[in-house]
Design a protein around this nucleic acid. Structure first.
Length: 414
RNA sequence: CGGAGCGUGGUGCACCGGUAGCACGCAGCGUUCGGGACGCUGAGGCACAGGGUUCAAUUCCCUGCGCUCCGACCA
């Protein structure tokens, strides 16, 4: 991609409402637009590429534990929500609307109702279980307040996975698998999470865990051991000493990046999801649900990976792997050399953002590259003398290498 | 939902009871050319909306709408 053609520009000043560092950087670097309205954001091309990377990681990990992707709608009938008794009893409340016939609808905040109803009509035998279904879909939540840019919004993409089982033991087993898959997802996005027991809120169920990234911007507080890895939700525990190692605990701010629930039979009973077991008896289907907010995950990644100059994307989710900067200074030879490298990399399938802008100073190009945070920066100029300067975003080291070596390094990394 | 504040070119801000300026950005020309260069020129605003006070309102008052912050809440 040629930077000169890329939609979305870096900014020097950001709107005053941007408080969280991830919010500021994502706007400044041209990944998202300022809020369209409170808690509603447009992803610009750069931001959307990162989103797609995260989406891919999630799909791989969920597919690996047997998740089947489907797609469920946003508009949902009132009747379904009355059956689960959540039409009026859910927090944050539903966004509600009426169609032209005055029929009431809800904008989906989650899909327990739809999927349980669906499964109830498709699953009749123990042979149909277990089953894991998921989708990545737009959710609408009537939050009291939106905060921190992408950290808490009213319209957002969530990966929601639902599992269905013939027994609570089988649910337990799958729950552990999801827990591990989630750890993998966050690790692949470049940060470690603390897994804490949580309160289940209006989603219900017996047991739930949250995945927290410790970070001062976070809105949640967890109790963490000062020595070992132990942590717990503050709503669950008030302990001075770590139950594992006895060391003192402290309160730390954190961002909730995922939440998983053992629902048991709650929705199945309300929505009539039963199956016939081996012994011919009718039994209720056990369920779990598992959610990750993609935009929040994206913002959290920025919270975890930035410095004073800008974002420092992990390779796994970077919008491009390389930023090629041409300091051609209107010298056709340099320009041609840069074009050549760009074309070769493109042909080799390397994701490259090529800063081909003319009449823009070196300083500005460097500053933009630092801000955007692509892992590898290549510079071509008169000084590099038919070689290419290689610098990684997270280090200061600069190497001068040949175009062939560049191609080699980048293709072997793939 | 309680409390507080703010709405002025694209963005960030200033000013003022006498119909608006600055910086960045944008356009043109020229000089620059390895860490956000510089000069000149130019375009761009019914001051959120409606009502009121006043000779006169962007400025004061009221209402609405929008946004932000603190709190409470939170799958």
């Amino acid at each position: 991609m040629r930077y000169s053609q890329l939609f979305g520009k870096t900014l020097k000043a950001v709107p005053a409402e941007a408080e969280a560092i991830s919010h500021q950087l994502l706007i400044k670097a041209g990944f998202i637009d300022q809020a369209l309205t409170s808690g509603v954001y447009t992803y610009l091309p750069l931001g959307w590429r990162v989103f797609k990377k995260i989406e891919q990681i999630i799909k791989e990990e969920i597919n690996a534990i047997g998740g089947q992707e489907l797609f469920m709608p946003t508009l949902q009938p009132k009747d379904l929500w009355l059956r689960s008794d959540r039409w009026d009893h859910i927090d944050p409340p539903l966004f509600k609307l009426k169609d032209r016939h005055e029929k009431e609808l809800a904008m989906a905040p989650t899909h327990e109702e739809v999927i349980t109803d669906l499964v109830a009509r498709f699953v009749h035998s123990y042979k149909d279980l277990p089953l894991a279904l998921y989708h990545i879909q737009n959710k609408f939540r009537n939050e009291m307040r939106s905060t921190g840019g992408l950290l808490r919004v009213r319209e957002f993409f969530m990966k929601d996975l639902y599992s269905f089982h013939s027994s609570s033991e089988d649910l337990d087993r799958y729950y552990e698998k999801v827990l591990n898959a989630y750890k993998n997802i966050f690790r692949r996005c470049g940060f470690e999470v603390k897994v804490v027991e949580a309160v289940s809120g209006t989603i219900g169920g017996s047991f739930s865990h949250e995945f927290m990234m410790v970070c001062p911007t976070g809105e949640d507080t967890v109790i963490a051991c000062t020595k070992c890895d132990w942590a717990a939700n503050i709503e669950k525990t008030e302990t001075q000493a770590c139950p594992l190692c006895g060391q003192p605990t402290k309160k730390v701010r954190s961002i909730e990046n995922g939440h998983i629930f053992k629902l048991g039979s709650k929705y199945a009973e309300k929505l009539g999801a039963y199956f016939t077991d081996k012994d011919g008896t009718k039994k209720v289907i056990y369920g779990g649900c598992y959610g990750i907010g993609l935009g929040r995950l994206l913002a959290t990644t920025v919270e975890a990976h930035h410095d004073e100059k800008g974002i420092v994307w992990p390779k796994s989710v970077a919008p491009y792997q390389v930023q090629l900067i041409s300091l051609s200074n209107q010298q056709p030879a340099v320009s041609k050399f840069a074009e050549n490298i760009y074309e070769k990399l493109e042909k080799a399938g390397v994701e490259v953002l090529y800063d081909d802008r003319e009449g823009v100073s070196a300083g500005e190009k460097f500053a933009d590259a630092d801000l955007i945070g692509i892992p590898v920066r290549l510079v071509v100029s008169e000084k590099t003398d038919n070689k290419v300067e290689w610098k990684e975003r997270k280090s200061q080291e600069v190497k001068l290498i040949t175009p062939e070596e560049v191609a080699e390094r980048l293709t072997e990394e793939k």
